[in-house]
Design a protein around this nucleic acid. Structure first.
Lengths: 171, 171
DNA sequence: CCCATATAGTTCAACTTTCAAGAAGTGGTC
DNA sequence: GACCACTTCTTGAAAGTTGAACTATATGGG
């Protein structure tokens, strides 16, 4: 649905050209496959979806391997609701634990446990290898640079997304 | 977890360079935001997630606005299981109906209804506009071309993904 | 101090996705 | 024509996601 000369009461829709459609489809195709690929690998190698893995990574980089929930949600680009569920699951796995925030009683800190760190340490090489094989081994250095720049531009335009859910600015 | 000089018994992991990490993060960031953005828009404007919309689009392009389930699954890059559930939902909405395949009694054809087509017609301009604003209005013509080529390369390397679920080659 | 309002995080219900069966049909082989 | 391997599609339960409602705490005036 991107080319038809429109049908209803519209005001000059700027439909995609054939070239644009091809790029758009290629984008959807590739990103879908990529996402699935990563998810499966990590599910297999680390027993969790990609985004959960990303949470552990975030924590591993944080001072004290600890982070406020909201901060973690923002960094991982997910809603607080989703994070709550995710951390609950990771906690059940023994990979993360929660601790009250001393300075703000509403707050919680998510903390990477040693077990969690171990899982990360074990899965990381395989994950990196996956990413490398699927992306960096296939692209020329120029393309890698182009991709980076393109993604930066796209992300920039998407940041201040409102939409009524949760906190407006929080995703 | 992409830079640390490793920790356990590994054989020379090819960690990502700082530049590669930046690109990788930019990629994740942008694609995540993009996906969320589209999903929300379509949920709001058409009452369904992006992938369901994609199914209707596929059908609208097919001869007779009809397609075999498996073919549809392959084109949409989803499992048949997922498609079954999705079509069930779309059928409940009255946007798709199922019909037995005459030549193969195992088969089902998914058919876009007039109501389904109407939904598509109504949502399409907004959807295209969303895509245009978020992607094509932001990139230079060169970047669009680069993006297309890069995505083609990435998809190429991901095609024959096995992994044990459903049919290996299907999805 | 007390209030209104904002923020942090969780929870609930509805929905989607996944995985592992399972029911039904096809096609080739002997 | 009975068997066997395979394909097509569906189902059910578990896991994950979403948006909205909710609890509790914080904050900045009056």
């Amino acid at each position: 649905m991107t080319t038809a000369p429109t049908g209803g009461g519209e005001r000059e829709t700027r439909w995609l050209t054939d070239d644009e459609q091809r790029v758009w489809r290629a984008y959807l195709h590739a990103t879908t496959l990529f996402d699935d690929h990563l998810d499966r690998r990590l599910q297999r190698d680390a027993g969790m979806p990609h985004i959960y893995y990303g949470l552990l990574v975030q924590l591993s980089h944080a001072p004290g391997r600890s982070k406020r929930m909201t901060e973690l949600a923002i960094d991982a680009k997910i809603t607080r609701s989703r994070l709550s569920h995710a951390v609950a699951r990771l906690e059940k796995n023994g990979w993360v634990r929660r601790e009250e925030c001393p300075s703000d009683k509403r707050g919680q800190n998510a903390i990477l446990t040693d077990a969690g760190f171990a899982v990360l340490e074990k899965a990381a090489p395989g994950h990196v290898e996956t990413v490398r094989q699927a992306m960096f081994d296939r692209l020329t250095p120029e393309q890698v640079e182009q991709l980076g720049e393109i993604m930066r531009v796209l992300a920039e335009g998407l940041q201040p997304e409102d939409s009524g859910a949760d906190l407006p600015w929080l995703r």
